[in-house]
């Protein structure tokens, strides 16, 4: 009896496992971004054009996978959440230039590659969150090394791309020696070992484990919309650092076309769609990010945080210092 039902189950599962047939009109995306962040956009694109969007989501290993796949890679489009990844893709010769007036004209010059190999879609600020119990503060990234914050700072892993990019920008500004010293002092000020996500740090402030944390801007908006996490977000102010000097550190989420994109035409259509006004508005409204297209307004919530001054450091410089930043983080034993 048992054996019989087992066999039946087994055969049924095998039949179900038959390979999917793929539509001819499609575009393949390798995405570092979370599914729920980009799926609404893709759905709209499919509705508009009839082109099916296939996605692999992964936070890690995408570049490596693309490199190994080489010229037979099915990937058309690469979506990343960090400038360094885009530059890395270009440096490894995994992407191709896209000459599209739609793209070049919609995006400000500092947010696209001169050789048209990558384009930013949104910008985000590396904010410093502070507990409301401290009152309003004015803070620079450099201040995180200040003695007075001893045992009061929380952050995710130093090796996370967002933090690596921040460290890289510090290197551009101050040089490696200063940055290593800064990292060591920040590490000394940490309330706990780097762990969790940006949201988790806000939770820690809510738990009074620490008072200050690093986090991207849009997480604040996202948390305010989640019934469980709103309690945490209500405990903190979102601060834009270095407003009196160089400005807050900016990172981008961006897009590039794979070098061997089999569906290049569809890929370009998707890229152009992503910078179109409706798509940019969707980014702004649902993801709480700053749309890269200047004419598209930010969401009401984000607007309420006020204007800010952005660091004018060229994004390519951040990417250039990425490996140096990683090494400094190791040297400071930041995550240990």
């Amino acid at each position: 009896m048992l054996r019989k039902s087992f066999t039946t189950l087994f055969i049924a599962l095998f039949c179900m496992a038959a390979f999917n047939t793929s539509a001819s009109d499609e575009v393949n995306v390798y995405s570092y971004r979370q599914p729920f962040l980009v799926e609404p956009l893709f759905n709209q694109f499919t509705e508009l054009t009839g082109i099916k969007v296939n996605v692999v989501f992964a936070k890690k290993g995408m570049t490596e996978r693309l490199a190994r796949e080489g010229k037979y890679s099915p990937a058309d489009i690469l979506l990343t959440t960090d400038i360094s990844r885009l530059i890395e893709l270009r440096d490894k010769d995994l992407v191709q230039a896209v000459n599209s007036s739609v793209l070049s004209n919609s995006i400000p010059k500092q947010y696209q590659a001169q050789d048209n190999t990558w384009f930013a879609l949104t910008t985000r600020v590396r904010n410093i969150y502070s507990a409301k119990r401290l009152g309003k503060i004015d803070i620079n990234y450099e201040d995180l090394a200040n003695e007075k914050y001893k045992g009061r700072i929380c952050t995710r892993s130093g090796k996370h791309p967002y933090n690596v990019a921040l460290v890289a920008s510090m290197i551009s500004e101050h040089g490696e020696t200063y940055t290593l010293g800064w990292l060591k002092k920040v590490k000394n000020n940490l309330a706990r070992k780097p762990q969790g996500s940006d949201r988790g740090q806000v939770q820690a402030i809510h738990q009074k484990l620490c008072d200050i944390s690093l986090g991207n801007s849009y997480y604040f908006g996202k948390m305010l919309k989640d019934k469980k996490q709103k309690i945490w977000a209500d405990e903190v102010y979102i601060n834009f650092p270095n407003q009196k000097n160089r400005g807050a550190h900016i990172n981008i989420s961006g897009v590039a076309m794979a070098k061997y994109a089999p569906n290049a035409k569809n890929a370009q259509a998707l890229m152009e769609f992503l910078v179109s006004k409706p798509a940019q508005a969707l980014y702004a409204q649902t993801n709480m990010e700053y749309p890269v297209r200047e004419s598209v307004a930010v969401s009401k919530l984000v607007a309420s945080w006020g204007n800010y001054k952005a660091d004018s450091l060229p994004l390519e410089d951040i990417a250039k210092n990425r490996k140096a930043a990683l090494k400094l983080l190791d040297q400071a034993q930041f995550d240990l």
Partner: peptide
């Protein structure tokens, strides 16, 4: 699974 997934596969 995380590192080897094909398209649309969670």
């Amino acid at each position: 699974v995380l590192l080897l997934r094909p398209f649309n596969f969670e």
